[in-house]
Simulated scan of single mutants.
Amino acid sequence: MAVREKKPEQAGARRPGGRFKLGRRWRKSALVAHIVFAGTWIGIDVMVAVLVLTGKFGTSDEVRGLAYETLATFVVWPMLVSGLLTLLTGLILGLGTKWGLVRYWWVGIKLVLNLVLCTLILVALRPGMGEIGDYGRDLAGGAPEPAGVSNLFFPPAVSLTALTLATVLAVAKPWGRIRRSGR
C-alpha cells in the first residue's frame, strides 16, 4: 500500500506569504457550519418577527403577554451566539480560502453586516428586553402598551433584510476585487 503525500492544497498548506490555506475537507466543513449558523440566525429572526407580531396583534392579552415574555427571555442570547458563530466561521473561511476577508467587496460587506448586527443585538436589542418581559407579565392585568413596544418591528425587519442581503451576496458574489491604492 502506497503512502500518499500531502498536496499543497490540503490542510496545513501554506500560501505564498505564509498565509494558511484550508484543505478541501476543512473548507467544506467550515462552509457547512457557516451556512448552518447563518440559517439558525435567520430562523431566530423569523421567530422574533412572529413573536413581535403575536405580541402586537394577538387574540388575547394572555397570548400577547406570553409572546412578549418569550421574546424577552429566549431571543437575545441565541441570536447573538448564532451571529458570533457565523462571524467565526466566516473569518475561518475568509482567512483560509482565496476569498480573503477584505479582498472582495461581497466578503467585506458581509463582514461589516455581521459586525453591525451583532453590535445592534448588544446595544439596541438587549437593554430593552427586561422592560418587554415586565410588560408581558403585566399585560394580562390590563396595563397600557408602552411606546417602546411598537419599536420592536424594526429589529427583525432590519436584521432579516441585512441577512437576506448577505445571502444574496454570498450567492451572486458581485463587484469583484477591492482595489488597493499604490498597486
Rank of each mutant, 00 (worst) to 15 (best):
L163T: 07
G136W: 00
P156T: 07
S60N: 01
G96S: 12
Y68C: 07
N151P: 12
I109Y: 10
N151V: 06
W106S: 15
V102L: 11
A147D: 05
P174V: 13
L120V: 13
I121H: 01
G108T: 03
L91Y: 09
V52H: 00
I42V: 07
S159W: 01
T59A: 15
I109M: 15
A162M: 11
Y68S: 07
L152M: 15
A124R: 14
G176P: 10
L88G: 13
V123Y: 13
S60E: 02
N151H: 14
L101Q: 11
L163D: 09
L88Y: 10
V81F: 10
E69M: 08
A157F: 00
A143C: 07
L111D: 05
T164D: 01
E145I: 13
L160Q: 01
L88D: 14
R64M: 09
E131C: 03
L66C: 05
V168W: 02
P156L: 03
V48H: 12
Y135N: 05
I132Q: 01
W175Q: 12
Y104H: 10
I44S: 03
G128R: 10
G90R: 02
E131W: 06
S150C: 09
A162H: 05
G58Y: 00
V171W: 03
T161R: 00
W105H: 14
L115G: 04
L165T: 14
I109K: 08
D61V: 04
L95N: 14
G55N: 06
T89L: 03
T73N: 12
P78G: 10
L93A: 08
V171Q: 07
W106E: 05
E69Y: 04
L51M: 05
L51S: 09
A170G: 14
R126D: 06
K98W: 12
R126I: 03
P146D: 10
I42L: 12
C118S: 15
G108W: 06
L160K: 00
T89P: 06
D134E: 11
E69H: 02
G141H: 15
I44D: 00
D134P: 03
W77E: 10
A166S: 12
L66W: 04
P146H: 03
G83C: 14
A49P: 01
G130W: 07
A172Y: 08
V76Q: 06
V112S: 15
G130S: 13
